[in-house]
């Protein structure tokens, strides 16, 4: 690692503090590169693993219109995964690594994917709640990262955030239809919210209290991120609690309240021990989804080999 008093490092930090965008070919300290690889590969692989829970409902979507919409939505997620993996690949290139390594890291558990995508999706309402609230949570985190100091990531996010805006409308539209529907549909939606609530709180990561982790502190110093987990979670609650309630849904937390003066939300903490188990691939659907991903990846090996062949000269 470069000494922090080296001229190169100081010049780099001056650029960061000026609000300059760092580009792929620019000099950067090793730990900046490592933090980015860690963040972006996790984000990219989460998009790809995140396609699977909703995909469970794609062939079953109730109407032709919903079938079309959810196909396009899940396709977008795969597209985001592709975009982000390309950004991560550029960062990994000097280390001699590529997307094959990312997939291997996923299968061995070194590379984690987001807690929400380890959860079960037993009903159609889950497809709505993911689109509306999981993507709603994602847009809050990604909205923050639009100002990330690394240019390629910030630009990829600009496109992703725009598309996520449509996803939220798509999810909200499914949820509204269920909320205004038959008693069975309303119950399906309420049960789905109850299933997802703890996972949604977990989405932003454990609250920091007064102690920032080394990773957190580095990401803040390097302007890779600009807000803490708790700040993001508070933002989510402010935006979505009234909307959820306006659909006549009951949030499964009787202690949930907002301080009228400070505007800070009090809420029951989800089980953070469980969170750690989930992100370590011990969640309800972790192994099943990893298994599905690994099988399709291995069975596609011969196809990727064909694609990697040198193309013969055109005749």
């Amino acid at each position: 690692m470069e000494p922090t008093d080296s001229l190169q490092y100081q010049q780099f930090m001056e650029r960061i503090n000026r609000g300059d965008r760092i580009e792929a070919e620019d000099w950067m300290p090793d730990d900046y590169r490592q933090q980015l690889i860690r963040l972006i590969s996790m984000h990219g692989i989460s998009e790809i693993m995140g396609a699977l829970p909703e995909k469970e409902w794609v062939p079953k979507a109730p109407t032709l219109f919903r079938k079309l919409a959810i196909m396009a939505k899940v396709q977008d997620e795969m597209g985001h995964g592709q975009l982000l993996i390309r950004v991560a690949e550029d960062l990994m290139a000097p280390l001699g690594k590529n997307r094959e390594d990312l997939m291997e890291d996923l299968f061995t558990g070194r590379l984690k994917f987001h807690n929400v995508f380890h959860m079960a999706t037993p009903t159609w309402a889950d497809a709505g709640v993911i689109g509306w609230l999981v993507d709603g949570a994602a847009i809050i985190t990604q909205g923050m990262s639009l100002s990330c100091s690394y240019g390629p990531y910030a630009r990829a996010l600009a496109r992703i955030v725009e598309e996520e805006g449509f996803h939220i409308q798509h999810g909200e539209s499914i949820c509204m239809e269920l909320a205004e529907g038959t008693p069975v549909q309303r119950q399906m939606l309420q049960e789905s919210l109850e299933r997802w609530w703890p996972a949604l709180l977990m989405f932003f990561g454990p609250p920091e209290g007064n102690q920032l982790s080394t990773h957190q502190q580095k990401n803040l110093d390097y302007k890779i991120r600009s807000k803490t987990n708790e700040e993001l979670r508070q933002k989510f609650l402010t935006k979505y609690v009234p909307r959820i309630r306006s659909l006549g849904l009951v949030i499964p937390d009787p202690t949930l309240s907002q301080d009228p003066v400070t505007k800070v939300w009090q809420y029951a903490q989800p089980d953070w021990t469980l969170f750690r188990q989930i992100v370590n691939n011990q969640g309800p659907r972790s192994q099943a989804r990893l298994g599905l991903r690994q099988m399709s990846y291995q069975e596609g090996q011969w196809v990727r080999r064909v694609l990697a062949m040198t193309t013969p000269a055109a005749v």
């Binding site: 794609v58 079938k67 196909m71 795969m78 592709q82 596609g300 196809v303 694609l307």
Partner: peptide, 18 residues
């Protein structure tokens, strides 16, 4: 639509879905 998320590589997954 059953192939979604399961294609041999990510770029083809996106194309196949279109």
């Amino acid at each position: 639509s059953e192939w979604l998320g399961l294609a041999p590589h990510v770029e083809e997954d996106v194309a196949l879905s279109s």
